[in-house]
Simulated scan of single mutants.
Amino acid sequence: MATHQMIAFLLLALSIITEASSSTIVNPSSQCYTSLFSFGDSATAAGIYTKDLAPGTESPHCAFTPYGETYFHRPTGRCSDGRNIVDFLAQHLGLPLLPPYHGEYPSANSTSFLQGANFAVVSATVLDFEFLKGRGIVSCQNCSLSVQLARFKTLLGTLCSTPLECREYLKSSLILLGEIGGVDYMRAAFENLDSGGDVVEELMPIVVGRIGSAIEEMIKLGAVHFLVPGDFPKGCFPAYLTQFQTTNRSDYDALTGCLIRHNGVSSSHNAMLRDEIQRVQNLHPDVSIHYADYYGPSIRMHQDPIKYGMGRATVNQACCGAGGPYNYDPSAVCGRPGAVACEDPKSYVMWDDHHCTEAANAVIAAEVVRGPSFGLGCGRGKQPAPESFTAAE
């Protein structure tokens, strides 16, 4: 690995450890949930580790500046200029920002995770590496949902001593399972341009079914409170808009300028996911499983950016990029030489090619908190919803 990349990883690891160790322990009696465990991909991730990368893979661009500039003032492994959605949810619940867990901590340090952990990994897929490889789809080796679940079980074994004790511990835990699955579809679409739609359609029920089985696995361990986010409108992402750019105006939504077909994939996934959630809920009536809508608030920002303090002209452009109609150049992505960040990330929905700004994440998180599903079934009612979440100045 190049020297500058090794230095970046060391600095990143140090910042993560510092951030986790400085978190304040919150009195459990003062809140609804006493811990939060999060799974997902780069929309949720809060750390980057070499063990999750394929051999010879470069450090992900999220490990470098200007990532993190708005809130943390340094890269933390989050693929945004600041906080992601789970950060806002944790803060709203009175919990510390979740320390990332990638299996690297010995049990002696498990007390750092008593109030939760973030298992999400950049480029994570629902489906396993070997399965996707068999379909001609390249993915990272140690970041599938199965890997994240295995790490959760390992960590859980250090937080409680017996199955009964673990069930009691998980009774006051919230499981945020996602957003995940979008990378499976993205890899299929980008690497199989001629037949990408067919491959995605084939993968979708497998992806959604695996999410459902993951919920059931955690129910067996004692988890009873789940929030399961759907997909973002991928047809609004600068990478999609660049990769699948056409001259056919009918391919674009007239109101948002987003690609209709790819937003349709996200909508189909979300509909299928809601059905799967209901299936599992029917099997486990004593468990609380709720769908979290990330698509709705995201698409509303693209439809009416002015309402959210964002710019109409830049609504589908990346704040951080290297030019082009959507400010995205795959040869000079954010965090790499040639890319620069805009002066005011709060006026953008999209931070880079695939990820929202902190400002957009704040809007989505606020909608989730205000929704009927957040906090239900936890024994002490919902936490009061804030007037709004605010991005850092």
Rank of each mutant, 00 (worst) to 15 (best):
M1F: 09
A2I: 10
H4I: 07
L10V: 13
S15L: 12
S21N: 13
I25M: 12
I25A: 14
Q31W: 00
Y33T: 00
F37T: 02
S38E: 04
A46S: 13
T50P: 06
K51W: 02
K51H: 14
E58I: 07
S59G: 05
S59Q: 01
A63H: 00
F64G: 01
T65L: 10
G68D: 03
G68R: 00
E69L: 10
R78I: 05
D81V: 05
D81L: 03
R83N: 05
N84M: 13
N84D: 11
V86R: 00
D87R: 03
A90F: 06
Q91R: 13
P96E: 05
P100V: 02
E104N: 08
P106D: 12
P106Y: 04
S107C: 15
S110Q: 09
F131L: 14
K133R: 15
K133L: 13
R135P: 06
N142Y: 08
L145W: 02
S146K: 14
A150V: 07
S161M: 10
E165Y: 01
Y169T: 09
K171E: 13
K171Y: 09
L174N: 04
I175A: 05
L176H: 07
G178Q: 05
V183M: 04
D184A: 03
M186Y: 01
F190H: 04
E191K: 01
S195I: 11
V200K: 01
E202Y: 11
I206V: 15
G209H: 11
G209T: 13
E217D: 15
K220F: 08
H225Y: 05
F226A: 02
L227G: 02
L227E: 00
P233H: 06
P233G: 05
Q245S: 14
Q245T: 12
T246S: 15
T247L: 14
T247K: 14
T247G: 15
N248C: 10
N248Q: 14
A254L: 13
T256F: 09
G257Q: 11
I260K: 15
R261Y: 13
N263W: 04
S268V: 09
N270I: 07
A271D: 13
D275I: 10
I277Y: 09
Q278G: 09
R279K: 15
V280Q: 07
V287S: 05
I289F: 05
Y294V: 06
Y295I: 10
S298F: 08
S298Q: 07
H302Q: 12
D304R: 08
P305C: 08
K307Y: 14
Y308G: 09
G309H: 14
G309N: 13
G311M: 12
R312E: 15
A313Y: 11
T314P: 02
V315T: 14
Q317E: 15
A318I: 04
G321T: 06
D329C: 03
P330Q: 09
R336K: 14
P337G: 07
G338W: 11
C342W: 06
K346A: 11
W351T: 00
W351H: 00
H354K: 01
C356F: 07
C356M: 09
T357G: 03
T357V: 06
E358S: 06
A362Q: 03
I364F: 04
A365V: 06
A366N: 13
A366C: 15
E367R: 08
G371W: 09
F374R: 02
A385K: 06
S388N: 11
